[in-house]
Design a binder for these strands. Structure first.
Length: 872
RNA sequence: GCGGGCAUGGCGGAACUGGUAGACGCGCCAGACUCAAAAUCUGGUGUCCUUGGACGUGGGGGUUCGAUUCCCUCUGCCCGCACCA
């Protein structure tokens, strides 16, 4: 597939840039000079650049290369701008793939993970990234995870962690709990069998404690993508409404003494209530089922259904009448039936609703199915209420929009908002409800029944209950001698590990055998980088407060909610426990696009690797057989459309790979990897190198005071480019920065160096290009810089400056329109008066022709921009 | 269903707060060099008709002297959430 450019072998050394030698040389130089070590102490302002740390899956993929290249551009640019840059790297090293490897190949997860880290660390080397490796951290090592065990116990003390029985997705084959993301179409992602709903004791972190703050603070994250902010906003899902209490009666109409509490955002529609519905997992449902086998069967059926999105989507709305009745809070003597319904979620609100079919689509569907009354209590303003109500009550479509309350006693005539307030006031005076705010966000369940994670430092004692592991016994480390030959958690069946003495009473007790969700480690690693080797604490508060928040964080959108929200929570929780005093961990966030590639399929439908396919123009073949070329999709092993970074680095070098990734499309959009694209980047690097070779012969010296006008034009372009590229780099417009740099390169190549000052300007321009492109292609630019005779390296050289006076020409060329259509251009002195613009524009033959001898009706002059003549 | 985004040549994409649409690159075409090819260099390349024009930023409409940019509307694609009461 990737034929090495033939020129590599053919060209003489002075014609071809030898990236192999140069890239290795500069990587060694930077390492020897500790160029990317954080300065401590430093008088410079700090700048913390962080890319999401990788999971050590075994090899780097193109997505990694893109991610770390983007961060590297920022880090190198900020360093040149005079910042003390921290740009660290580490390993998100706990996780399921390590256990799968153990299962499939009989390797210990730890050995597998550590070996992968070794391979990947070596793969990072040739990319030429400006990383401070002295701060490397590995989350699966006790030196790292012991701190989060302590942190968890602190969270427990302040009530931010708790244990509760809750419903979870249970895979009966793998004997483990699955995250919602691991349940696909109601089946376990690996086992492929139906997932069950089970009630298990789980540890939770109380992220809901900060729901309001996490929501409010989104507004302040002004350097985050709007998309991510919106997603978090929706995820937290704030709803204002009321909790309403409904006293219950039995089948005979006698009060049971119990009440049903429901949450509603529409207390103004209470007079339209025709039923209540509770979740199958609601305690009242279980109680009602005690004497009703059919109900018990219905509840079991609901639990089997799974919580997967697809299952819910297609599920028919079903209910079962418990026989219980609920007393209406406002209407004396009125009761409504209480159903168990499969669409009511236990985890939201109180797990119960009241149904108002007239003004809720779902309630309407339910009411029609079970023959429940439909009552109209809101009519659009300006319509005849009686006619509207009659139509609504006869039809099957709920009215959910704004309007005026009708058929609602004391609410009649009020608009929806006012009616809500009045209803809540009434509920509160009757002590049958209260205004409240409900969030969609739920507490974070962190228990996982897996081996390769951080042990939860808890001991269960029959006498003392749940006992935190004392500080002196931390860390709780994973046992090495585990087996993966049977399903389930190896920690739970380990012969000795879980058996301990109770730290409180000394009797026999058992360890918690669950481990933390791997999102736990990534929720605070950005703080650990601030003091990565501190032994007794997770990080020094001083260091963390100095470096945090991260100035620029970079990663994929797939973490827009979970990881980023957890980290925001953790920062607040750590602050609550005195570790630091900060709310937001990431001041700037950038989400990069995916790396994509065309897909290829053989006639039998099998996916083919790009390397196996012979492509000629629009058609492709495999072993002489035709190949279907599919759309460009995210590189993935399953579709075989991956390109190994290693082979690209070997063939073209890091700079070419970096340049292509940066120039092809804007960093937040998907990037399509093509052979032609990388070759284009490679060509440019060689062209630039040849150009620089010509500049080397020109002795260095100050620019002459008087320049030939042609040279002066180029000089102005150099200054304009410095200004524009600086701006582009600040704003993540790397593709545009490359385009402008190439433009300048073209101008330098085309300029007449023989004119007065031409050589000096040329040399100055080449040096400027090397500086401007240094964050993008650091090796080649160092090489050019050195060849120009500099004795210090470019990496330690400040960013070039521009002279604002040289940004603009004295003359300006602008378009001349007649009736908005371009008819020509004029070039006039920039400072010229309007009548000069007008005269020059009217003098154009094309303009005269359009005017046809008549005087213009109107002339619009925007100095420096355009002249538009309105013809009669 | 709800929420959000996007739509510009054969392709990736430029165009700052409304002001010369298509920068820069890829691809393609022609030429130079070469026995030939590769590499490199030069020129061309939005579409349509004849020089000169006309048309052109998904479709339709609007505001404006002037719209890729602002407003309305329709279509298509992508993403997030998904019975959230």
């Amino acid at each position: 597939m990737l034929h090495p450019p033939l020129g590599i072998a053919m060209a003489s050394p002075e014609e071809r840039y030898n990236f192999r030698e140069a890239e290795t040389k500069w990587q060694k130089t930077w390492a020897a000079q500790n160029s990317f070590r954080v300065e401590e102490p430093s008088s410079k302002p700090k700048y913390y650049v962080l890319e999401m740390f990788p999971y050590p899956s075994g090899r780097l993929h193109m997505g990694h290369v893109r991610n770390y290249t983007l961060g590297d551009v920022v880090a190198r640019y900020k360093k040149a701008r005079g910042f003390n840059v921290m740009h660290p790297m580490g390993w998100d090293a706990f996780g399921l793939p390590a256990e799968n490897a153990a299962l499939e190949r009989g390797v210990h997860p730890g050995a597998w993970t550590r070996q992968n880290i070794g391979v990947m660390r070596a793969q990072f080397q040739p990319l030429g990234l400006s990383l401070d490796w002295s701060r490397e951290i590995t989350s699966c090592e006790p030196e790292y995870y012991k701190h989060e065990q302590k942190m968890f116990l602190d969270f427990l003390k302040v009530g931010l962690a708790y244990r509760k029985e809750s419903w979870v997705n249970w895979d009966p084959v793998e004997h483990t709990v699955l995250a919602n993301e691991q349940v696909i179409d109601g089946k376990g992602w690996r086992s492929g069998v139906d997932v069950e709903q089970r009630k298990l004791n789980q540890w939770f972190l109380k992220i809901t404690h900060f729901a309001e703050d996490l929501l409010q603070a989104i507004e302040g994250l002004d350097r985050w993508p709007d998309k991510v902010r919106l997603m978090q906003h929706n995820w937290i899902g704030r709803s204002e409404g009321a909790r309403v209490t409904w006293p219950l009666t039995d089948k005979a109409g006698k009060d049971t003494g119990e009440t049903l509490e429901v949450f509603t955002t529409r207390p103004d529609t209470l007079f339209g209530a025709s039923f209540c519905a509770i979740s199958a997992q609601h305690p009242l449902a279980a109680k009602a089922a005690e004497n009703d086998p059919a109900l018990a069967e219905f509840i079991a059926e609901c639990s089997r259904g799974g919580t997967s999105t697809a299952a819910i989507e297609t599920a028919e709305k079903k209910g079962y009448d418990t026989g219980l009745k609920a007393r209406h809070p406002f209407v004396a003597g009125k009761t409504v039936p209480v159903y168990v319904a499969n669409f009511v979620l236990m985890a939201y609100g109180s797990g119960a609703i009241f149904g108002c079919p007239g003004h809720d689509e779902r309630d309407m569907e339910f009411a029609r199915k079970y023959g429940l009354p439909v009552r109209c209590v809101v009519a659009p303003a300006g319509e005849d209420p009686n006619a509207f109500a009659a139509a609504l009550e006869a039809g099957n479509v709920a009215y959910v929009d704004d309007g005026v309350a009708i058929n609602s006693e004391f609410l009649n005539g009020l608009a929806v908002d006012a009616a809500k307030r009045a209803a809540i006031a009434k509920l509160e005076s009757l002590k049958l409800g209260t205004g409240t705010v409900q969030y969609r966000l739920r507490d974070w369940g962190v228990s996982r029944q897996r081996y390769w994670g951080c042990p939860i430092p808890i001991i269960y004692c029959e006498t003392c209950g749940t006992v935190p592991v004392p500080d002196k016994d931390l860390p709780v480390t994973l046992p090495e001698d585990v087996t993966f030959d049977t399903p389930g958690n190896p920690l739970a069946r380990h012969p000795t590990w879980k058996h301990v003495k109770c730290p409180a009473c000394g009797k026999n007790a058992q360890r918690e055998t669950d481990t933390f969700d791997t999102f736990f480690e990534s929720s605070w690693y950005f703080a650990r980088f601030c003091s990565p080797h501190l032994a007794d604490r997770p990080f020094s508060e001083t260091a963390a407060m100095n470096w945090l928040p991260v100035d620029q964080y970079i990663g994929g959108v797939e973490h827009a909610v979970l990881h980023l929200l957890y980290s925001r929570f953790f920062t607040r929780a750590m602050s609550a426990c005195g570790y630091l005093n900060l709310k937001e961990p990431f001041a700037g966030m950038f989400t990069q696009g995916m790396v994509c590639h065309e897909t290829y399929r053989a006639a039998d439908g099998a996916w083919l690797e790009p390397g196996a396919v012979a492509k000629t123009g629009e058609t492709a073949t495999y072993n002489g057989q035709p190949v279907t070329i599919g759309r460009s999709e995210k590189m993935s092993k399953s579709k075989k459309n991956t390109v190994d970074p290693q082979s690209i680095l070997d063939t073209y070098g890091a700079d070419a790979a970096r340049l292509f990734m940066l120039s092809d499309s804007p960093p937040d959009r998907d990037l399509e990897w093509t052979d032609a694209g990388i070759e284009g980047a490679w060509r440019y690097l060689n062209r630039l190198w040849r150009l620089a070779t010509a500049a080397v012969e020109i002795p260095e010296g100050p620019l002459p005071a008087v320049l030939d006008p042609a040279a002066a034009v180029v000089l102005r372009q150099i200054h304009r480019t410095i200004s524009a590229v600086s701006d582009d780099l600040e704003k993540f417009r790397f593709n545009s920065a490359v385009a402008r740099t190439r433009e300048l390169t073209n101008a330098l190549a085309d300029m007449d160096r023989g004119v007065g000052g031409g050589n000096a300007v040329f040399r100055f321009g080449v040096a400027a290009v090397a500086q401007l492109i240094n964050p993008l292609t650091p090796h080649l630019s160092e090489e050019i810089w050195q060849s120009l005779g500099h004795t210090t390296i470019l990496t330690e050289t400040p960013w070039p400056t521009f002279d604002p006076a040289l940004l603009e020409d004295d003359t300006v060329t602008i378009g001349v329109q007649v009736n908005g259509k371009l008819r020509g251009t004029i070039t006039v002195a920039k400072a010229a008066a309007n009548d000069v613009f007008e005269a020059a524009a009217l003098a154009l033959p094309a303009v005269q022709k359009q005017l046809d001898g008549k005087p213009p009706k109107k002339v619009i002059i925007v100095p420096g921009k355009i002249v538009n003549i309105v013809a009669a």
